[in-house]
Write a protein that binds this DNA or RNA. Structure first.
Lengths: 153, 153
DNA sequence: AGGAAATCCTAGTGAAATACTAGGAATACA
DNA sequence: TGTATTCCTAGTATTTCACTAGGATTTCCT
């Protein structure tokens, strides 16, 4: 039940992007420098976020990324699902027509997985990027945010 | 964000155990036969559940396992945490004294991981084994539960 | 006593996923 | 034309997962 680095790094990157891309696009180089992430790896994450319609890209010199939607319309859930795939804790095969779990109707644990799934999604869908950006600004205002790169989550 | 087979199989096994161990201990052989699980693997899961104090074992012929607590005092959360370890989506190193995340105080994403963690734990802690046993009995009453083994979740 | 049925314990292992790295093509600004 | 960027595909070392294997120990039954 762990999130992979995709989700963890990607959320940090998007918060960073939301903070710095108000006027001009933000390059992968600058995000990865601030957040202490591998450029090449972050590149792949941004590509996924783009496919999911959360960011837009500007190619060429002076280019980079910007949010494709206002920060108060992008939820943590949108970000995590884009990067991690479905957040449900178990892939119940009950969906496929001929796929798998013939016991779907009599499967007791399925109820449990559904409940977990709902609670996770509800939680992540109600936290908006804009809110995290606010928090971040508050905290960086208080302390000099010099050592931000230490946080790997 | 997927549960491993440990949590999935283990929960099924414990539901099975709760149903069949009212009078006598239930052997791994019989659980794995009913649930269509590898005996050797299930053995390891039962060992973990024992360490966690959820089941007791009776050695020797005629032995097996019984619940160490009544089924209405064992939650799904107890089972999953015993088998999967902590359910928190990110191992924030903020706990260790000299361990890791120096940015803990200024870490924005930490808030997100905490919220997810809380919602997962709350959900799984309020579903009791006894309830799942009830559900299982209802469903097996309706249909002839012959094909139970097909469900791999 | 002796065998059968069970738990207990440690280690090994093939396959898959993870977390990157690498190389280069395409695009746009200056 | 050159430099800064995104874009795309493929390779790879490490780790984790999901078992399998071998045997020791305990207890019941005859």
């Amino acid at each position: 039940m762990k999130l992979s680095t995709k989700g963890r790094y990607g959320l940090r990157a998007l918060i960073d992007l939301a903070q710095y891309s108000e006027k001009t696009p933000v390059s992968i180089t600058s995000i990865s420098a601030r957040q202490n992430l591998s450029e090449r790896y972050l590149e792949q994450l941004m590509s996924m976020l783009k496919k999911a319609g959360l960011v837009r890209s500007v190619r060429g010199a002076g280019g980079g990324y910007v949010l494709a939607q206002p920060a108060d319309r992008i939820s943590v859930g949108d970000v995590l699902r884009a990067l991690e795939g479905s957040l449900e804790p178990v892939d119940c095969a009950g969906l496929d027509p001929e796929g798998g779990c013939k016991a779907a109707d009599s499967c007791v644990t399925k109820y449990v997985w559904q409940r977990i799934n709902e609670s996770i999604n509800q939680t992540v869908d109600e936290i908006m990027l804009s809110r995290l950006v606010e928090e971040s600004r508050k905290k960086c205002g208080a302390e000099s945010g010099a050592d931000r790169g230490d946080c790997r989550n």
